[in-house]
Design a protein around this nucleic acid. Structure first.
Lengths: 237, 237
DNA sequence: TCAATAGTGTCTTTTAGACATTATATG
DNA sequence: CATATAATGTCTAAAAGACACTATTGA
């Protein structure tokens, strides 16, 4: 949310400012994390906030969401899964003005090439959502909570988990995504059986991975199988 | 969507008009139907459209959604399940102005006491969504399609179906909701077993129904059991 | 009695969870 | 060889689907 001008509290004739805020989730160091930046509008200059932009005059909401990411973190559109999450319209969610915010959920794989500006960082979502966590500007903690719940739910019945990994990936990598997002540990063998028995979830590709320095059997490699909905679903334990 | 004034195509300084449109679904005559009204803004005065209102200056989005229903059809707030669906923000979705629409999904039981004005009616959703169906104003056919898919999906993992019936209800009535929304026929015995074995879905209340004029065993009566999420889910066949 | 609707029981198949076992790499 | 990671197999329990059967009403 970047209100770059001071407006009166009420817009003329029922108009509102419309902004897009993006909750970008990724898995780093085995934890689900969210991208935040230091706000640029008082009184929230010292708080973390989600990247956001005002909707352009001839710009779609999706385009604004992609722009919000691209301008902050050079995350290009095809790299990130992007879906609309929820629209926050409480009249007093912004202490200055009436701003309706259309929140988006974005997912990216762990990419070391993602270079962030100095005023942006990733925070673990369990830190952000805990009572002891840092305060976020506006209602952005609620947006993060809703984004995390959306991601957790969609891992069950969709192939969304593949948006957290780069192609090709191993089943162990995919399992670690589920474990990080859900915050549980999963049985390797049962996970593997469910994934490969769900039509269209993953497709094996040629080649195997090189084992780590401590050895281990090389892992087969997979790519997304094209299905977006899973039958049967991968239910949370 | 009721743009009651003609605005220039671009609002000042990135402002938008924000409206709420409501897709009210109910089950009538065994079919899922949606509430529509004749539009009041050219060129859509002769087309059906969803009830909608501009968001008031100090009004929340939820409040606008309830007001849109109450002003058209006297559906009072506690009667109807109401949840936000999706926000439609294509810059050219309205031929006149840039209007961002926050769509809501509402559900009500069949209520004969619901008296509609002459310019409003219920239409079966399969009619609205078929290629041969009547055109709807703006992008309202898309909104109906999204609302129906949301309802169909949520019947699986939530107790939303109870929003379509009045308390107390029989399991046959609840089953007919599932059959109408999903457009399938379900096995009576298996449906009953799944419902009563899902903790918190329904709770039996005292008394039985009177059989119809052709006889039949009196049915037990139930009320919602308090759970909003179902474990295990009621999966579509 | 029969027709109609409500409710129970049983069998088979599918899927989930626990966990033992085998396979292939490094050192 | 031991150790680490990947992949398979087996057993049991839970749930879904098909469908026969029983129960209670009105005519």
């Amino acid at each position: 949310m970047a209100a770059d001008t001071a407006y009166a509290n009420l817009w003329p004739d029922g108009l509102c400012a419309v902004a897009v805020d993006v909750a970008l989730l990724t898995v780093r160091e085995g934890r689900l994390q969210v991208l935040v930046a230091k706000g640029d509008t008082p009184p929230f200059t010292s708080l973390w906030s989600l990247p956001g932009r005002r909707v352009g005059a001839d710009e779609s909401l999706d385009a604004t969401a992609h722009r919000a990411l691209a301008e902050l973190a050079k995350v290009s559109a095809p790299d990130a899964h992007m879906e609309q999450l929820y629209t926050y319209g409480d009249p007093h969610r912004d202490p200055h003005d009436r701003i309706v915010s259309v929140a988006y959920l974005a997912l990216t794989p762990v990419t070391d090439t993602l270079h962030l500006p100095a005023h942006a960082t990733f925070l673990p979502v369990d830190t952000v959502l805990s009572d002891a966590g840092p305060a976020l500007a506006y209602d952005h903690r609620q947006i993060v909570a809703d984004a995390v719940e959306r991601a957790r739910a969609k891992l069950e019945y969709s192939s969304l988990a593949t948006a957290f990994v780069t192609e090709p990936f191993t089943l162990a990598e995919l399992r670690r995504v589920y474990e990080a997002v859900w915050g549980v540990s999963l049985d390797e063998a049962n996970f593997r059986r469910k994934v490969v028995h769900t039509p269209g979830f993953v497709v094996e590709v040629s080649g195997v991975t090189r084992p780590g320095p401590e050895g281990g059997r090389p892992a087969r490699r997979y790519k997304p199988g094209g299905a977006s909905l899973l039958h049967p679903a991968m239910l949370r334990p």
